[in-house]
Every structure is written in structure tokens, then in C-alpha cells.
């Protein structure tokens, strides 16, 4: 699998169709994001595991957004999995990336990882390497809802109280790109106070993720307090789906119902 990807990156770089490729590198015992340019050594290229899409993941799209803000006229390649591709669709829709200037290199995730991530679609539409694994059924929201109202209350209150307000969830999220963040607006979130105001802090983020979250799970992985953030956003996604028939990142160019004013457009 990795050889196919190397070949592809090599081709893209040597024929000059991209300025660089955002992917992962395995160096000094760690996996990190890396921008490969013409002439760079692809030996240490990594897909998250030695030769396949492993569990070392990074929000590469986020790196890409930063890059394309700096170099708006250049074309970049980017390594994408199923979740990253959903992210790309979202970022196109929200005008953060120009599809004409992005060359996705799609890889599928192995079944074991799909299971671990509880991933609905562990492969990108536009895939060049790997075998598609099966999507995993999502049970989290239904499980949480089988508890009573007061159980849910104490559960979430306990979870939110653990928050240390590190902003890790926002910083890792590939769909968080605003230059000014509501969570830093002092009228909503007072600076330097703990515990955070419940449920304002977490629900503000959840509301902003309602039509964006692509269910990649990076926030869950990043949270030092182990708060099941993704479950919260899964619920917003479920509401968006039942109320408006919308799922973030599934269709390219689909507009979000939350970005429309007035009556819903004819389907």
C-alpha cells in the first residue's frame, strides 16, 4: 500500500502538478505531519502505521488550510482517509479550501482501525490504495438515551466538570478554522475560571459543530480529561439529520441548512 502512495506522490511532485504534499513522516520514533516537496526523500513517509493507514492520525486538512491561507495560488496534495475526505467536502462547502487547488490522495483504513474508531465509512470516495473495510454501526447516542433524564444530567455534569479548558478539542479539530473563536469571547466564557460554565462551554462548541463535525474522533483522542465529546457531536449530527436530512461531509458541495435563511429550498 505504501509503495503505491509513494509512487503517486512522486508522480505528482515530479510532473509539477502540485507544489507539495501534506502527509505523515515517521521520524525519531514519532509520527508527525510533514510537507513533502520536489526532491524530498520519501523513505520516511508514513501512513499512520508502517505500511498502512494506522492509528497515528493528524488533522492534515488543518495543516492544509493553514498552508493554503499562506499560498492561496498553489496546488497541494494531501493524504486523506474516509474521515479526512468528509472534512475536505466540508471545507470546500465552507469556502476554506478550493477544490481546484487540492489533490486528495485517498487511502482506506483497515477493519481493526474502523472498529476502534467506530467509523461509519472508513474509506474515501476517491481512493487509490487499500481495501475498503466495513462501516461500523453507531450505537453511542442510542445507548446514552436509554438512560433517564436525571441520569443523563449527572453523567454530563460529571463529564463537563472534568474539563480543564485546554482548548485541545478545538485546536485538533479539522473543522475548526475560525479566526475568532466564540469560546474565547469573554461574554460567553470567562477567562481563567474553572470549572467551566456548564453546559455553556461544551454546548457552544457542540452547536458550532452541528453542521460541521465529520465524526473523525480526534477531539475525543485529544481531550486530556477523557470527556466523550464526540458523543455530544454525534447527537447534534443526528438532530441535523432527522430535522433537516443533512449529514456533514457526505456529499460534495451540499449546502448546510444552517447557512440558509428563509424557507428550505426545493429538493
Amino acid at each position: 500500500m505504501i509503495d503505491q502512495v509513494k509512487q503517486k506522490i512522486n508522480d505528482l511532485l515530479s510532473n509539477g502538478s502540485v507544489k507539495g504534499v501534506v502527509a505523515l513522516v515517521h521520524t525519531n520514533g514519532n509520527v508527525a505531519p510533514c510537507l513533502y516537496q520536489k526532491g524530498d526523500d520519501l523513505d520516511k513517509l508514513c501512513l499512520g502505521d508502517t505500511d498502512s493507514a494506522g492509528d497515528a492520525r493528524y488533522p492534515l486538512n488543518k495543516v492544509l488550510v493553514t498552508l493554503s491561507r499562506q499560498y492561496p495560488d498553489e496546488v497541494f496534495g494531501v493524504l486523506v482517509r474516509g474521515c479526512d475526505e468528509r472534512g475536505l467536502y466540508g471545507l470546500y462547502r465552507l469556502n476554506q479550501l478550493d477544490p481546484e487547488r487540492v489533490v486528495p490522495i485517498g487511502i482506506a483504513c483497515p477493519q481493526s482501525l474502523a472498529l476502534q474508531c467506530e467509523c461509519k465509512k472508513p474509506w474515501p470516495d476517491d481512493m487509490m490504495a487499500g481495501e475498503t473495510s466495513e462501516g461500523i454501526d453507531q450505537k453511542g447516542v442510542a445507548n446514552a438515551e436509554s438512560n433517564s433524564h436525571s441520569e443523563r444530567f449527572s453523567y454530563w455534569k460529571g463529564q463537563f466538570l472534568k474539563c480543564v479548558k485546554c482548548y485541545g478539542c478545538r485546536d485538533i479539530c479539522p473543522m475548526c478554522f475560525c479566526r475568532e473563536c466564540s469560546l474565547e469571547c469573554e461574554d460567553l466564557v470567562s477567562k481563567g475560571d474553572l470549572p467551566v460554565e456548564i453546559p455553556v462551554f461544551h454546548l457552544v462548541r457542540a452547536m458550532h459543530m452541528a453542521d460541521r463535525c465529520i465524526d473523525c474522533g480526534l477531539c475525543d483522542e485529544a481531550c486530556p480529561a477523557d470527556i466523550p465529546l464526540r458523543l455530544l457531536y454525534k447527537k447534534t449530527a443526528q438532530i441535523m439529520n432527522t430535522e433537516f436530512g443533512f449529514t456533514s461531509g457526505i456529499k460534495k458541495y451540499e449546502k448546510s441548512p444552517l447557512s440558509l435563511m428563509g424557507p428550505a429550498p426545493e429538493k
Binding site: A144, E145, H149, S150, E151, R152, F153, S154, Y155, W156, K157, P199, L203, A206, M207, L232, K235, T236, I239
Partner: peptide
């Protein structure tokens, strides 16, 4: 609905 989900 989110409030309800969080038990509020």
C-alpha cells in the same frame, strides 16, 4: 434537543 440530551 441538545439540552434534553444532557439532561437539562
Amino acid at each position: 434537543q441538545m439540552l434534553d440530551f444532557c439532561g437539562i
